[in-house]
Amino acid sequence: MPKLVRRLFVLPPDLEGAARSWREHGDRTPRAARFASSVILLRDSPTGLETWLGYRPGTSPLGVLAFPGGSLQASDDDAVGWLGPSPQHWAEQMGTADVGLARRHVVGAIRELFEETGILLAGPDLTSTVEATSTGEWMRARVAVAEQEKSFTELLAKRGLSVRTDLLKPLVNWLSPAFAHRRFNTRYFAATLPMNQKPSLLAGKGVWGRWVCVRGVINERETTVLGDEVGQANTAGRHLGELLVPGSEIMLEKMAGANGCIAYLSYKRKAHVYQPELVEEDGRLMLEVEAATTVAGDPQRER
């Protein structure tokens, strides 16, 4: 396994107030972290690996720009058709003894991906997935689930569908910094784009989202190109590190170092909880993370 080394990251502007308050008033009891799931959606392209990034209004623990995801809901516990590895297997892969929580994370990941992009990792059996989820009917279903007017599990049952858990790959576990006002304990997963499905923004809520070339994003990380394209008050003029939480930036680096979807998904990962720590470097508040120095043999950029 790659060696973990100290990495320093820019403190996102949205967290500066909370960070300074934490330092001024001394360490206090961190606010409880909500469980969340996020999915890195992947596809190969002529220019290299691509992933879907979206803008998140407000102050999200996942970052201003982030992979599809959000907090778990009580309905993620409801009965649902299940295809693929068992919840017990998922718990083992995720390094937790809480099988029920592992199951919620998996269902929550598939639900959040559907809400935010319309990509549905579900099908009638292990040999097929739903196709053509870009219709008006599916969009209305997405809105209903997002507004919690209808549960995701109810939607699947009505259509005779089961979640395809075999299409998910467990990645890593990130915990928000202790000083943050809103905190997530997030399990990240990866999935490749299913055949005959294409992502789209949620009607009435989506502001910006698109496929990005991972290497291109990393190569332009010191520019404001992506933030300027999004064009929001809290993105314009900002570098990549000011738009992403450290976990997302590190995962983009790893994707940039991988030779396609298969290589990225086959990379061996050890169950580990990562949490950025607030540190002061030369009078500047920054986030410190212990992260791998290499990805599939490729060097990562040091800070």
Rank of each mutant, 00 (worst) to 15 (best):
G241P: 09
P57F: 08
R183P: 06
L285K: 02
E137A: 15
E253D: 03
E302N: 13
T294P: 03
S71C: 02
L11F: 02
R269F: 10
L121H: 06
V99R: 04
V64Q: 06
T192S: 05
T235Q: 04
K270W: 07
G95A: 03
P199T: 13
L121K: 04
A178T: 05
E112C: 02
Q232F: 07
A97P: 00
L155W: 05
N259M: 04
S38N: 00
E116N: 05
R104A: 07
G136T: 15
V214A: 12
S45G: 07
D14V: 12
S151M: 13
F9R: 00
A102L: 07
P68M: 12
E137M: 12
H89V: 15
R31N: 12
L193P: 02
S37R: 10
D77Q: 14
T294V: 05
L41P: 04
K150H: 10
K150R: 13
K158A: 14
D98Y: 10
T235A: 08
R103C: 03
H272L: 05
D282I: 09
S45F: 02
V172F: 02
P246Y: 07
F67K: 01
T192E: 07
L113K: 02
D76P: 08
L120P: 05
T59E: 03
S266L: 12
L168Y: 01
I250F: 01
V163Y: 03
R187L: 07
L243F: 04
A109F: 04
G204N: 01
T135N: 09
E249A: 07
E116C: 11
G17F: 15
G26T: 13
V64R: 00
G160K: 03
E242N: 02
R238I: 10
I218N: 01
F152N: 04
G160Y: 06
E112G: 03
R183L: 11
M251F: 01
F35D: 03
K158S: 14
V5A: 15
L65V: 07
G123I: 14
V99Q: 00
N185E: 10
M195Y: 03
R238T: 09
T29A: 14
K268H: 12
W90C: 01
E242M: 02
V225H: 13
W174Q: 11
